[in-house]
Design a protein around this nucleic acid. Structure first.
Length: 789
RNA sequence: GACCCCAUUGUCUAGUGGUUAGGACGUAUCGUUGACUUCGAUGAGGCCCAAGUUCGAUUCUUGGUGGGGUCACCA
């Protein structure tokens, strides 16, 4: 018994590790701003926490296809950043360092964050490097580092000076759990069960009963008015009278207001401070005196209920109402409520002093700015417009939290003058620095609030540009991002660029989709998470990227393991094809051209050229999935299964120009193919380049080499496809006869086909192993009987 | 309730005003040729429904149905 020698195939684990090191050692992706055309990318900064997830892998791979393509067509600026000034970072650092941010000064905690980030970032970024994300990791920012704090604070001061930022106290969206104000964009719908109770009120003047339905009975003591519709016949006569909130013995006016819907509930609406944003509006319109009955932490302040949380108060109020026989009707319902997207807590409206950026007066301009940007896919533009049109509040940028970028102002204790930090002081923490009022000389109180994290990440292009001394300015070429943050990151970035520089932040925006599993969104709570690291270990980064390249722009992709298998096979096939080609090019110098190209070779090169054209156009339009499928088909079908088979024997057996013609074509094609595949499968293509091309081609890496050039004549080949169609007819005949593809035949072709083959007849006979080709009316394959035993 | 997206074989998907509607996995039948069994050949199998525009619709329009998303309502 002989042992089968184990064939050494393509070892992606070994190769990818080696190539990754090569790129780092040789600084292949180092920013080079001397190039004429620089394609600048406003890279999304991920939050440094835990590991890269599959959604990251998916969207960063897609960006990287674009970047690598652009790099081969000019120059790129592809920095990297991390977003670290929000709650997730605060929690992570608290956990890792076993501290409480609130027990430290803000400056100290930021210092600790920076130190901690320094420690964990290299490990975190490693996932991105392993995926082959070709960013310049030396051009790296964190949204909490000095430079970001400086730019963020400077942006604040600039807008303040322009009068676009104001501080005001009025009811704003508040999260009692996080104890901070939040922005409209941070709201999330949630279906929650609730009790829908119809309560008995009394009309003071007549003593009659008045029924009002509510889901928020705990706000009864905050009731400041009752609304009925002016046209409502049932209630016309009580307008102007007084209603009594019986449980709390409180009298409120009954007013006519069109916002009361006659159809809803009992047709009578109670206005509380504050149940929802309509209450806010109603109280303002009627100049009512609000009665706030809850603290910032969501505990009640009214007698008998002090210290009770909202929900407990609601329960107790209902019990008391029941005891007093004041509930007319009650049913269990499910209703949608607004919650805070970070913690899922139902939001409240509380009057607190907050900082706002004026955006409500700029809706039209912001829509116009959006129109100046190219959205890919186009329909994502609509989502932006819808969001802007639906805005109802100015952008609240202050957060009542400890960790974050400080708002760089002080307020005079006496005259309320706002004192701004000087630009030379930035970044600054007002809590660490004493100021006096320049007007009255009194002590100034530092602002304690911090900026919302979006107030900083909305400056990501400017921050990224500052890493190269502002040599790259907005508009950047591209913003790649996911669709769930159009209303935040995309919108805020457009708004800031407009307000601060009257520019658009980028020319193009490319929106990526999500990864789903069996049609469901992946999430930790569902436990259907796929870990990209495992995939890289089992299939390789090239395979993972190959999978990511298969989705249409903007649409979600359902994860299927088989796609990774296909990717892995493609990588292997490409490697083997290159190996095979070069086995036959040992005596070829990479330059020599035959005096005359064989017709098949000529047509095949034409076919290649046409494919390059289509593929290039697809990449330019960010249609990488189209590009991928074209490259794949060209490689697998046209090149591997057809062309190589066609010229095999010519290369083995012929000499001189006939052989040289095939060698020339093979070399040109495999080089072009490697380059075409390079954006999508950067590791195997680099390995091929370093193994076979490095001594002939002059570039140090395939990724810094130039994209395949187009011939002037880029028409599709009219002959190659018919050739292949005929070839497949012969194969079909062989298959039907259950013969091997190598079996000898005698071919009968009609006149048209014989003419079509023309000069290519010899190659056609070679690939079909036809001894003789006759002309006849009908296509026919006869087998030269093999002397089978 | 409003708006947006989607509907293609058993599964995941590409694409198109005229195509034998492409691929992957699965499946059936063969084969193995001096790169590759992570291989090759061949076959079976598909455009949600209805109306309209058109010489011609899977593709465009409208409506329906079903799925996904966003916003709003939430007395």
């Amino acid at each position: 018994m002989t042992l089968k020698p184990k064939k050494k195939g393509y070892d992606f684990t070994e190769v990818e590790a080696k190539i990754k090191r090569f790129w780092e050692d040789k600084k292949i992706f180092k920013t080079d701003l001397t190039k004429k055309k620089i394609y600048a990318v406003d890279t999304p900064p991920p939050t440094v926490s835990g590991k890269m997830h599959i959604g990251h892998a998916f969207s960063y791979a897609q960006q990287d296809f674009i970047v690598r393509f652009q790099r081969m067509n000019g120059g790129v600026y592809y920095p990297f950043g991390t977003d670290d000034n929000g709650l997730p970072t605060e929690r992570l650092v608290e956990k890792l360092k076993k501290v409480r941010s609130k027990n430290m000064s803000r400056a100290e905690f930021i210092e600790l964050c920076l130190k901690t980030l320094e420690e964990i970032r290299p490990d975190f970024i490693e996932d991105w490097k392993s995926l082959g994300i070709s960013a310049d990791y030396e051009k790296c920012y964190s949204t909490i580092d000095n430079q970001s704090r400086k730019l963020s604070q400077k942006g604040f001061l600039d807008l303040f000076k322009k009068g676009e930022i104001y501080k005001a106290e009025f009811p704003t969206i508040w999260c009692c759990e996080c104890q901070t104000a939040i922005a409209q964009a941070e709201l999330e719908d949630k279906e929650l069960p609730g009790k829908f109770s119809t309560l008995k009120f009394k009309i003071k003047e007549t003593g009659k009963e008045l029924l009002i339905a509510t889901t928020r009975p705990e706000l009864l003591p905050a009731c400041v008015a009752i609304f009925v519709h002016p046209e409502d016949k049932r209630f016309k006569k009580i307008i102007g009278k007084t209603a009594v909130v019986q449980l709390f013995n409180q009298e409120v006016p009954i007013l006519a207001d069109e916002s009361a819907d006659q159809e809803k509930g009992t047709g009578v609406l109670m206005i509380c401070s504050y149940g929802d944003k309509f209450d806010v509006d109603a109280i303002n319109r009627h100049n009512l005196e609000p009665k706030v009955v809850f603290n910032k932490d969501g505990t009640a302040t009214y007698p008998g209920y002090e210290g009770l949380k909202l929900k407990a108060a609601r329960k107790k109020v209902l019990e008391e109402l029941d005891k007093a026989n004041l509930i007319a009707e009650q049913k269990e319902i499910t209703h949608t409520v607004n919650t805070h997207d970070k913690c899922g807590t139902e939001i409240e409206f509380l009057p607190t002093p907050q900082w706002f950026i004026r955006i409500m007066d700029k809706k039209k301009k912001l829509i116009e700015q959006g129109d100046k940007i190219n959205w890919y896919p186009k329909y994502m533009h609509k989502r932006y417009d819808n969001w802007v049109n639906g805005l109802e509040w100015d952008w609240n940028i202050s957060r009542n939290r400890h960790f974050g970028i400080p708002i760089p102002v002080w307020e005079c204790e006496k005259c309320n003058e706002i004192i701004l930090a000087k630009e030379s002081e930035l970044p600054i923490d007002p809590l660490q620095s004493k100021k006096k009022c320049p007007k009255c000389g009194e002590k100034a109180i530092p602002e304690e609030m911090v900026l919302d994290t979006w107030a900083t990440s909305s400056l990501s292009p400017q921050i990224a540009g500052s890493l190269v001394d502002d040599k790259i300015k907005i508009p950047f070429s591209l913003r790649p991002q996911a669709h769930d943050i159009i209303r935040t990151w995309a919108f805020y970035t457009i708004a800031r660029a407009y307000m601060q520089e009257n520019k658009i932040p980028w020319k193009d925006i490319v929106i990526s989709g999500n990864v789903s599993l069996k049609g469901e969104k992946m999430s930790k709570s569902k436990g259907n998470i796929i870990d990209p690291e495992t995939l890289i270990t089992n299939y390789g980064s090239d395979a993972l990227r190959f999978w990511a390249s298969g989705s249409t722009l903007g649409s979600d992709l359902d994860y299927q393991e088989k796609d990774l298998v296909t990717g892995k096979k493609t990588v292997n096939k490409l490697w083997n094809a290159a190996k095979f080609v070069f086995m036959n090019l040992e005596d070829y110098d990479g330059k020599s051209k035959p005096k005359k190209l064989e017709k098949v070779d000529q047509e095949f090169l034409k076919h290649l050229n046409y494919n390059i054209k289509i593929i290039t156009e697809s990449f330019e339009k960010y249609r990488y999935s189209v590009a991928k499928s074209k490259i794949e088909r060209f490689f697998w079908d046209d090149f591997a299964d057809n062309y190589i088979e066609i010229v095999k024997k010519r290369v083995y057996q012929e000499e001189g120009d006939k052989r040289l013609s095939a060698q020339y074509t093979l070399y040109k094609t495999i080089l072009a193919l490697s380059k075409l595949f390079a954006p999508i499968m950067p590791f195997v293509t680099e390995e091929i380049y370093q193994t076979y091309f490095i001594n002939i081609e002059k570039d140090i890496s395939i990724h810094t080499s130039s994209w395949p050039k187009l011939e002037k004549d880029s028409q599709p080949s009219t002959e190659f496809t018919p050739f292949c169609t005929l070839l497949s007819k012969v194969r079909q005949a062989k298959s039907n006869a259950q013969k091997s593809m190598n079996s000898e035949i005698i071919l009968t072709l009609d006149k048209k086909n014989i003419e079509m083959l023309g000069e290519m007849m010899e190659d056609f006979n070679s690939v079909t192993n036809s001894k003789e080709t006759k002309e006849g009316k009908q296509f026919r394959v006869d087998f030269v009987e093999p002397s089978k035993e």
